[in-house]
Computed example of a mutant assay.
Amino acid sequence: MSVSVFIDITFSEQTLELRSYLKSLGAEISEENSEGGLLMDLQNIIEASDICWKEIKDETECEMVFNGIISLILLLPIEEVEEPTILFCQKVSKGDKLPAVRLKVLSNLFNALDEKLPFRLDVYCSMVRLAGQSETLHYVNTDLAQIKQWIKMWDIKIVKVQNLLRTLHQAMIETKMSESATKVMIELLGTYTEDNASQARDDAHRCIVTCLGDPNTYLLDHLLTLKPVKFLEGELIHDLLTIFVTGKLRQYQQFYKNNTDFISSLGLSHEQNLRKMRFLTLIQMAETKKEIDFATLQEEMQIGPENVEDFIIEVLHTKALKAKIDQQQKKVMVKASFQRTFGRQHWQQLRSILENWQPNLARIRNSLRSLELVQSAQ
């Protein structure tokens, strides 16, 4: 059965067309409009639209039906749009059939609504949840800068902002976007204040696990400064984070020996933790040593002599360390490495360097001006 294109007819006529079509699919809906008015008719149609996912096999046909419903939502007075919009999102986002069509019609609704309407948030969250479950999050705009602009425009309460960020974080975890998920979770923790930081225990716990589990995240000291994370002091998860910030491989191994079940309960890979701790231990050594012999590496990293060079090369690929391997002397010659922790003393050093640059830049500028004057005179 072909679907009518609902244009150039009245709202009432469009609802009648949709009612009749849904009835033909087997939906329990009257073919006549209700006495409750246009809003009631639209809600009846949205409630009955579940039948489309069961009976319509053609994706284009299914999309046309839901686009027809969207056109009706947009014809409502602005004060009546929110309720059917949220109902529409509930009906479209729940289910595993035709996920691409579901996401597309939600996107159509999101883009069709006035960008300043606060309940666009509900549409966006539905899109994110659906995209996470169907591994199609790459089709949704998840840029944090854009999301912050929307949050500011919609002027929504902080609780809704936090729910949005949690939803986005979960979808990113489901689609293996670990690095982006980490940024979103840190953004979420930043929404808590001194007054309510103690309420963020679950979010802080989840943030730590996400960062530890991300194979590409090595700098973790900034997490310890977050207020919600500070409230976890004294708990095993905070102790584990502290080891990854300042500890060495042997400390992690002792922690694992004492808390094997805890590590497993977090869903973290012990082997991946060992790999990351070996990297971090080497980085910490490179902060104070310009030459590290292979024998020391074997002892500290607890690896065999045949694995030393491969280990160093693997670390070099992370770009966290710049070094050369001296095979004859069996040494690693360190050129530079990132700071595993960046505290007050490092900021002071950076300030001192910048302050020294200022007069040097001024002298260079004056020299260039003098040279320019000489050339002009010639």
Rank of each mutant, 00 (worst) to 15 (best):
E179V: 02
Y218S: 01
N196H: 10
D261V: 01
K257R: 14
E271T: 14
E179N: 08
V184I: 13
D214Q: 08
E187F: 03
L268R: 09
T210W: 00
L226R: 08
E271Y: 07
T217C: 04
M172A: 04
N273G: 15
K227R: 14
M177L: 12
A181S: 15
A181H: 11
L236K: 15
T210R: 14
S269W: 02
T210S: 15
V229G: 10
E174A: 07
V245M: 01
N259L: 02
V209F: 02
L249E: 12
P228D: 04
E235S: 15
N216S: 12
H222T: 05
K248L: 06
D239K: 15
L266G: 06
L240Y: 12
F244N: 00
M185S: 14
T193A: 01
L220P: 04
H238W: 13
D214L: 03
L268Y: 08
Q254A: 09
H238P: 07
C211W: 01
H222S: 07
T217Q: 11
R250A: 12
E174S: 04
T217I: 07
N273T: 08
Q251E: 15
I208A: 04
E235Y: 08
E174T: 03
T225S: 11
A171I: 03
G213R: 08
T175I: 12
C211L: 05
A171E: 08
Y252Q: 05
I263N: 06
N259A: 09
L223P: 05
M172Y: 09
E174D: 13
G247K: 07
L223E: 00
T217M: 06
E271M: 11
G247R: 08
T242A: 14
V209A: 14
Q254D: 13
I186P: 04
E187Y: 03
L249M: 12
Q251S: 14
T193N: 05
L223H: 00
G234H: 07
I243S: 09
T246S: 14
M177K: 14
A171D: 05
F255H: 03
P228S: 07
L224M: 09
E174V: 01
D203Q: 05
A171K: 08
T225M: 02
K230Q: 15
L220N: 02
A171G: 09
Y252T: 15
R250W: 07
I263P: 06
E179Y: 13
M185G: 13
T175Y: 10
L266C: 13
E271N: 15
L220M: 06
A200N: 05
L236D: 05
V209L: 10
H222Y: 13
L268Q: 09
Q199E: 15
F262P: 05
S198L: 12
R250Q: 13
L236G: 06
A197Q: 14
E174G: 02
L188T: 05
E174K: 03
E235L: 10
K176N: 11
N273E: 13
D221I: 03
Y218C: 00
